[in-house]
Design a protein around this nucleic acid. Structure first.
Lengths: 219, 219, 219, 219
DNA sequence: CATGAATGAGGGTTCATTCAT
DNA sequence: TATGAATGAACCCTCATTCAT
């Protein structure tokens, strides 16, 4: 085996480790499998990471960093109120879509992270993931209430939990698919659901999404 | 006559195993820890379970069975349409509260099951948990649309995912607390959110929950 | 399960143990299997035997005792010399046949005992088996030489080893069969072989066995 | 460049394992004892063998291969008939002696393999050992009959069993000794016994061995 | 930096034996 | 005597980590 250019070693290891962790989780991932996948020696692993857990943490934190960058700067509501629900959706949508794109790119890792049955000592990393989206949702909700956009009789803490729970499930549904679905359509449906509710009674503003979207079966 | 089967042994083992799994997950749980917690010898474990995994499966499946029993028969919408949102809520609420009660009782186990960071070979058990609630939600949604209760421009598949995602987060929030929160109030908020949406625009029916609920801090 | 009459318990255990040991040898035999085969409880085993090894020893020694009884009193050569090879064979034959009969009866146990690949701490029991036949053969040979029946240029020690080795193989061949073969014919062939040798040159005395015997294939 | 493969490790392990197996047999041998004998760590064992059984099999099969090489090409009888028993012996002897030499070299292992009291799942390996010598003897016998060298009234199947049984016992007697005995003399005695028989009646050809050999006591 | 043989603590599982009933 | 649940020492094997080359 020819020795790979040095700087490639770490990259290959990260790639391989992400795949191995995605498939087996932290405890069931084997360092040796990672190095075999990466095409390097077992010793090389410890030149780049101080331990298996360290490697796991680095990979997950690195994803979370990328994710956080996307999540952070949402629509600034303080500026001007959206005039109608259409404008509202158009403002929020690109942001949500961008987040889902990032999730799609790291879907292998995310599938593992969001999958239950765990009990790993690193669940706190996923907590961070969840808290981040929740805090984001809470900020948004708070401001929207202040702006008179949202009802004032809701509890932003509870509602933001529910919203981010729904988003997480949306993410899970998306990343589980073989082929990338129409992320935008899914997001529209989510946004509409939360803003308008489910009731059949007429409400101002028209439908914002194609209701026929996503009839395809998962998997 | 032999030493009488000490029924406490198996029960203690199950208790201890549930606690150990809840704390450490499958791979990081130690059989010896379980037996020490249960106050029996290591060998006793294998009189009752054929392996560590077998024990895990039994515990999880047993919870899922209890859970499934609660989830199953929801409000029958076919009977008569609820006249207003109040009646609607009153019909759905007891069912949701009952489910959350079960979750609260097994909160240790559930915390572990729903916590991410996994990668266990038993994630499919959690999938079953999720699929069950989702299928439930989908049925409900479908019927509600047919009854004219819900809007007909929504996709029941997508919406049921979002609903069960929000429910799962609600469950997570509840079971994470030290003290049992006011489950009913949380449920009211969730139901109201989905049915009426977030928008401040007036909608038929009055608020169904106290918006100040649940300001206490988690953990 | 009804309790067997007390005195049957030990007999059933011995039967079961012999079968289990025959199939698996000492180290790989399980006390539990023995008790299951015997239809008694695990504790019962220790009411009759002080340990698994003790049980093994008892069974093997009991067989060896039965065997020794058969082997012991051979033809008394001191009396009168056989006049010819026919008479010689007729004198020796019944004795050898009787031994093989005993072996056939305990063939399960013997198969295990004579089968190689061992390394058990009880090999000395088989050694006793072998030494007994060898000593027997040596006595016989010694006397036969003194009587002028056998050549005086052979070493009784070496020859008795070879003879008992051949006998052991004969036993092995016999006990490996599904159906009991014509033991007498096999013995005749063995006796003739040792007394007359293989050479085609004429020798006093006629053939003493049917040369067509035993063409059937083993197994 | 890594730590160079220390060829001594595997060799030491094989040595140590052979000794351990020879002393205790498969089931009672401890992997840890083997590694301690070899002066390496427990883990090292599994770098070279996939399991204890694997190691056992390798060692036994390797011996059998060496053994088979020796056994195979015997005297070619088709060429010319030996003129007298002397020539006959001289032809056969080197072959038999060579086999016994190999047995002597691996006497520890063989002692265990041929020792009874077994019941191991690897008895079939010893069976192969026996079948090989028996088939060899049968071939020989068959050809010798066809050449008119051996009597035609014997059954090659039975006789070859007896011959290889006697050989096996010869091997056992040899490998049990502390010091290597005069293998050639023992073989001469065996060959003579089978060819000429035991009877005192004169037969063509002179004695081919020193009858005083091997009076020393075993062990 | 890279290698991969070597290490050794650790854990799951077995099973002979005990003992309360 | 009989039972069979309980015990716990022992052992095989795994795998994260080290280190001589």
């Amino acid at each position: 085996m020819s020795r790979l250019p040095d700087h490639r070693t770490k990259i290959e290891l990260l790639r391989a480790a992400e795949a191995e962790f995605a498939e087996h989780g932290l405890s069931d991932a084997k360092v040796e499998s990672i190095t075999v996948r990466a095409g390097v020696s077992k010793g090389a692993f410890y030149l780049h990471f101080s331990s298996k857990e360290d490697c796991f943490r680095i990979i997950v934190e690195s994803f979370l960093a990328r994710f956080a960058t996307c999540v952070e700067p949402p629509v600034d509501l303080s500026a001007t109120l959206p005039r109608d629900i259409h404008e509202f959706v158009e403002r929020v949508l690109p942001h949500d879509v961008a987040i889902l794109e990032v999730c799609w790119q790291s879907r292998g890792l995310l599938r593992m992270l969001l999958q239950g049955g765990g009990g790993t000592p690193h669940a706190y990393l996923v907590e961070e993931f969840r808290d981040r989206t929740r805090a984001q949702a809470e900020d948004w909700t708070q401001k929207a209430i202040e702006q008179g956009l949202y009802r004032s009789d809701i509890d932003p803490v509870v509602v933001s939990g529910l919203m981010s729970g729904a988003y997480e499930r949306l993410v899970q549904d998306v990343i589980r698919r073989e082929k990338k679905p129409d992320i935008e359509a899914w997001c529209r449906q989510l946004i509409d659901l939360f803003t308008r509710g489910l009731l059949a009674q007429p409400i101002h503003g028209k439908t914002v999404f194609d209701p026929k979207v996503n009839r395809e079966k998962k998997r």
